[in-house]
């Protein structure tokens, strides 16, 4: 660094210097970076084990320089359960999309949370199946057009978008549950604090920590990256309100 300059930002060493496969404007890359920043700042990069899902983030292990296991579609929470039960002193996290966590893996998600498994779940909700090319997700909004809801999601036929953070927060095993978003710098900073909180509460063995990250999908929403920010603000966040849904540490402080 040049003399006289103060370091205000650097790429975390835990984020590998590889070109990412994500589409331009996708929030995945931001979330990868935030998690790796927190891991590095907490000094847990030599202990932590990540679990990647099937979906757009299936290759998350190509970007994060920590031990990683790739799970079958929907089974990240089962795999993480196995890891954490074997290595209870290691921080463990899953990184899952809406199809993985809320559709095919709903049982694993709910039961891991209900058992209070001591790992962190980072749940990316972009209301669509990205990798397979834009099909309806459990979290697709009412009326939203996807390739399998070409006339808009009709809840009478295919059910309503699932509010996972609200559902999960009902389970006694969950120690911390929040919904964040990455649609502007202020929210990105908040999300980073919440990621750190998840790892801290995990280290205290208080229960499952669950962070729903409202995300975007420029490619399959058929919107420019900038316009996805409007869609997030005007549509996604109306149905998926941000905020802490549960925090056992806050209750303790009272």
């Amino acid at each position: 660094m040049k003399e006289g300059y103060t370091l205000v930002y650097k790429r975390p060493d835990t984020l590998l210097k590889t070109r990412m496969h994500y589409c331009p404007g996708c929030f995945h890359s931001i979330l990868h970076k935030l998690i790796m920043e927190v891991v590095e700042e907490m000094g847990i990069q030599n202990d932590v084990i990540g679990v990647s899902p099937v979906g757009c983030s299936v290759f998350a292990y190509d970007y994060m320089d920590v031990d990683f296991q790739e799970a079958a579609h929907g089974r990240a929470c089962a795999v993480a359960t196995g890891i954490k039960r074997t290595l209870p002193n290691h921080p463990v996290f899953t990184y899952q999309g809406d199809g993985d966590l809320a559709a095919i893996g709903l049982a694993e998600t709910m039961h891991a949370c209900n058992r209070g498994e001591k790992f962190s779940i980072f749940f990316v909700n972009n209301a669509i199946y990205g990798m397979t090319g834009g099909q309806m997700a459990p979290t697709t909004l009412e009326g939203q057009i996807t390739t399998t809801s070409p006339y808009g999601r009709d809840p009478k036929n295919v059910g309503y978008p699932m509010k996972m953070a609200e559902m999960v927060s009902q389970l006694p095993g969950v120690a911390y549950c929040e919904r964040v978003c990455l649609n502007n710098p202020a929210n990105v900073r908040k999300a980073k604090k919440s990621i750190r909180k998840c790892f801290e509460i995990q280290a205290q063995n208080l229960g499952t920590t669950f962070l729903e990250v409202v995300s975007n999908c420029p490619t399959n929403w058929r919107l420019s990256p900038i316009k996805t920010l409007d869609f997030v603000e005007n549509n996604m966040l109306k149905y998926y309100p941000l905020g802490v849904k549960k925090d056992v540490t806050a209750t303790e402080e009272k």
């Binding site: 089962a78 795999v79 359960t81 196995g82 074997t86």
Partner: peptide
């Protein structure tokens, strides 16, 4: 030793996958 009753066989085999990958005798 850790023993856990899973929610299904689908889940238990994937718990095995995670635990064995983490180095356990599973």
């Amino acid at each position: 030793f850790t023993v856990l009753q899973a929610e299904s066989e689908v889940s238990s085999i994937n718990m095995v996958y995670g635990a064995a990958a983490a180095g356990g005798r599973i």
